[in-house]
Design a protein around this nucleic acid. Structure first.
Lengths: 201, 201
DNA sequence: TGCGTTTTGTGCGATACGGTACACAAATAC
DNA sequence: GTATTTGTGTACCGTATCGCACAAAACGCA
């Protein structure tokens, strides 16, 4: 185990042949396309370039691997959103940029897979409460990011920043679903563009 | 086969021991909770009260059974929405009633399973294009129902009924996702109530 | 060098999975 | 009564699945 206080320079035992973040990024691609239930440990291991026991030793069972991957994806998503919302311009321009960035990701060829949280975690929620909990936390973090951007803006105090964030988040989740179901990017872009002035009214 | 011109009163062969709609309704419950991939044919057959060969004979393979079930669920959903939107009161009141009805369904105890289309079909879309196509058709039917209600109302001509329908639909899908992820019904009701005047502005 | 620790690699096990073969059952037509 | 058609029930099949056992590899430390 790698936990605990490491006094010496190098940990004892055979070194790992992989970097955890790289594995999670490769495994994310499989989970994003197949979803949790349909992604087999064999294909996850193949994508990771590891044998199954190595994957189990490093990340735990399949659900734990999925949760690690979801947190990894979610953290990057929130960081990306924070970054765009902290950028230049009015809050409308920043929100529009956030939607554009999200749509570009959700509809990237060849597969147009949408968002891992909304697209693959929700279906597991009734039977995997731990997955549901992580997904909910991540959506809350997205909405918090949005709320902070609205709170720091010069928009009218009503609707409140929290109400605006809930609405902006809802529009983003709907776009993610529509993207995964195959909606054309142009259609999603037009929809997002029409929603920005409504959210920022 | 039951197709073709039936001159005689009763079809030849052994009669079915089940009613298709009843089977689809029972199977829907399993698919709604487990999703397509994780629902096994054994448990679907058990829920239906049929042996697996009978289920295969009547509905085809697992994907075909899922598609039959999705159409069955979607048809009922659209009919329910049509009915609420054709009811008494202003279009705001009718939209509010539609959201209330949807939220009650999506958050019905014990499981709070959300919507079968958004909650279970989207995840399969990249790998099951037939499922994606049916789900998209169903969402289009929901939006058409909404659009017709807006077109027949005395709301301002801008935004157009189609734009209002897209927005109202998006809010409904987001509510469905949030419900499946475990959001509290009161929270979803408050959100829906805050969105109705925005959609109908 | 030997021992302890951690990781990798091969193979295994028990079970589940989706789908099917086929005998028998239940009906209609003649 | 027999032939035909359609449905049900039991058993089977080939394969996939998830998780694990254990030997060997690769390191640190004394």
């Amino acid at each position: 185990m790698r936990t605990g206080t490491e006094i010496s320079k190098k940990p004892r035992g055979r070194p790992r042949a992989f970097v955890a973040a790289e594995v999670l990024d490769r495994v994310r691609v499989v989970f994003l396309e197949k979803g949790f239930a349909a992604a087999s440990v064999d294909e996850l291991a193949a994508a990771a370039g590891l044998n199954r026991p190595s994957l189990y030793a490093a990340f735990g069972d399949k659900e734990q691997l999925y949760i690690h991957t979801l947190r990894f994806y979610g953290k990057k998503s929130v960081e990306g959103l924070d970054s765009v919302l902290a950028g230049p311009g009015t809050v409308e321009q920043r929100l529009a940029r956030a939607y554009k960035t999200a749509i570009d990701l959700y509809t990237a060829p060849p597969h147009r897979l949408g968002c891992m949280i909304v697209g693959t975690a929700a279906v597991e929620s009734p039977t995997h409460p731990r997955i549901a909990a992580v997904a909910s936390e991540l959506l809350a973090a997205i909405e918090k990011s949005l709320e902070q951007a609205f709170a720091a803006s010069d928009l009218a105090p009503e609707p409140s920043p929290a109400a605006r964030a809930r609405m902006a988040g809802a529009i983003m989740y709907a776009i993610a679903i529509r993207a995964r179901l195959g909606a054309r990017p142009a259609e999603l872009r037009a929809f997002a563009a029409s929603m920005v002035p409504v959210i920022c009214r």
